[in-house]
């Protein structure tokens, strides 16, 4: 029980990291990036490839791939988003668009890496388990938890301690009002979108250890999981995402301990339950249902 709880917290922090980028994108753009999970998958393959080709430590890959994908994100934003925002029904159209993107990424990943699961099997974080409250855990779980915590902290500092973060929150609160008060909405949104993708890729670099093998079809499931996490902790609320991640992680570990054959159902059921009972999430202020 205690073991499942602590493991749940470690995984929960990791899932919060996966969800955070999606939440940031949604908060700023009011669009759900259905390709979010695919960027996690890209990060995963990048880490595996970098390790097998140059023996690059996954934590270095994490930083590198996050920066690279951030740059890709900026470009992607300016190519895709302004056109979409001008259509009649941007919320729906963007879902379809990002789904198309997700298909393209998945197809390219199959061409490049094949359909077999790839992972890093060497114990790069040391063999010795780390002991927390007398319970032994794989070192990599602890490292992933800590890295996720650090990333969450950085995003918090960005949003609440920098000038552009302040503008970002203004755009989240109201796009129109932010625009008339002189904030460059496109610039702020592009950066937030790119940070979201960068976070996804960073989470991906740890995925070989936390999720097992990386396969090209990982994307859709991860996107739904990330969506469950952020809805649980309210959309547009980065701190809520951490809480959502923790609840999800603990619930997942308990399910895997006591009802293993049904644990795959968890993200979907949790998501449906939250949406139907309290669509604003556990920490939300406004209700967003019709």
């Amino acid at each position: 029980m205690l073991y499942a709880l602590i493991a749940g917290v470690l995984f929960g922090l990791y899932y919060a990291l996966i969800g955070l980028g999606l939440n940031l994108t949604f908060g700023v753009l009011r669009m759900v990036n259905l390709a979010h999970g695919d960027f996690v998958m890209i990060g995963g393959f990048a880490a595996v490839t970098a390790f097998s080709a140059w023996h690059l430590h996954p934590l270095w890959s994490l930083v590198l791939v996050a920066v690279l994908i951030f740059a890709v994100g900026i470009a992607l934003y300016y190519v895709l988003v302004p056109r979409i925002a001008a259509t009649k029904d941007p919320e729906m159209i963007s879902l379809v668009l990002f789904f198309g993107l997700s298909q393209v990424i998945e197809a390219l990943a199959v061409m490049r890496f094949g359909n077999n699961a790839q992972s890093i099997y060497e114990p790069v974080f040391g063999k010795a388990p780390v002991s927390i409250l007398g319970q032994p855990f794989p070192a990599v779980w602890v490292v992933s938890g800590l890295v996720s915590l650090l990333a969450l902290l950085l995003v918090y500092l960005y949003l609440y301690r920098t000038r552009i973060g302040y503008s970002t929150r203004a755009v989240m609160a109201s796009r129109e009002e932010a625009e008339v008060s002189g904030i460059s909405v496109h610039k702020v949104s592009a950066i937030a979108f790119a940070i979201g993708l960068g976070l996804a890729a960073a989470a991906g670099a740890l995925a070989p250890f936390m999720l097992g093998g990386i396969t090209p079809d990982l994307g859709v499931g991860l996107t739904v999981t990330a969506f469950a996490v952020i809805v649980l902790g309210s959309l547009g609320n980065p701190i809520g995402t951490v809480a959502g991640g923790l609840i999800y992680g603990i619930a997942l570990m308990l399910m895997q301990t006591y009802l293993p054959s049904w644990s795959a159902l968890l993200p979907y059921l949790l998501l449906l339950l939250v949406l139907l009972v309290k669509p604003s999430g556990l920490f939300g202020r406004q209700v967003r249902s019709a």
Binding site: V96, L97, G100, L101, S102, Q103, V104, A107, V110, M111
Partner: peptide, 15 residues
């Protein structure tokens, strides 16, 4: 290949 063409088609269509 089909998935790739399809994904691109979706993107172009929407844009």
């Amino acid at each position: 290949y089909f998935q790739l063409i399809y994904g691109l088609l979706i993107i172009l269509l929407v844009l």
